[in-house]
Design a protein around this nucleic acid. Sequence first.
DNA 1: AAGTAGTCCAACCGCCGGAGC
DNA 2: CGCTCCGGCGGTTGGACTACT
Length: 294
Amino acid sequence: MGRAPCCSKVGLHRGPWTAREDSVLTKYIQVHGEGNWRSLPKKAGLLRCGKSCRLRWMNYLRPDIKRGNITPDEDDLIIKMHALLGNRWSLIAGRLPGRTDNEIKNYWNTHLSKKLRSQGTDPNTHKKLRDPSEQEPPKKRRNSSTSKKQKNKGNKSNEVLLTEKQKVHAPKPTRIKSLTSFSVSRNNSFDWTSGCSSNEGDHRGLFGAEVADINNPWSNFKEVGFLIGEDQDPDDHDNHHLVNGSDFACGSFVPMGGDNNLEKLYEEYLQLLEIGDHDDDHVQLDSFAESLLI
DNA sequence: AAGTAGTCCAACCGCCGGAGC
DNA sequence: CGCTCCGGCGGTTGGACTACT
């Protein structure tokens, strides 16, 4: 007995979003905040299902979305994170400011998996491929007869490195672009009504200096992310700080002083990888991976 | 120029887990 | 405890676009 669809499909729009729909959704969320996705379309006057609205917002309309090419730094981090976490795209995305899980997933499938294969590395296991013939995946040919019923059944091959699904502890990763200009939490609703610019055409303008006001409701933002950049410059990818969300939530957060915490993350990871095969070292590596999940 | 093959990515789907009752 | 609701996640698809022949 399957679950009922998240909403009635009758009369609902599907496919690409129009500019008008985007505008309606954005304005609604600016006023009412995220959440209540099921009832949102009706309240906002959209003929979309709640899931579709949420997806559109999360993957495209959120003000902190960074559009544009993935940088080599991000590229590298994605590969390393994937080696640690597997296809946990949302977790990986949580480490990359302004990137969505969908974007990273797409990027992985279209670029990075090929890149790794061309380098003789299995993109699933991150181990060297022995058989050169494995370096080229089968040609992807669309088969319109492929039944969707066949998909998603036992399709958990992504658990390559995580044979046993690891428990992800709250708070979930969220992204913050700046200590002085918080961006939207991936998982939280909040009051948009103050601190939001009325500049409808410029989403990033919503997060200008005015939101740094300590008196604004954003200051009560409890769940925090891991990546904090000091700079709004979208090209400055080294300027993020990794913080433990629990530290922030407990009010004990102190900004990390280094400028290259992404690199520190790499280095820490690489050091652990270079360690031998001792059981203790595996424990360390596991602990490191777990620390990324917390 | 036209047809075909390949690429890219927004959007959809089904499943899962937590919260609430 | 079991059920339902809801939000979130990851896999997959459809179709627009680009490259190639």
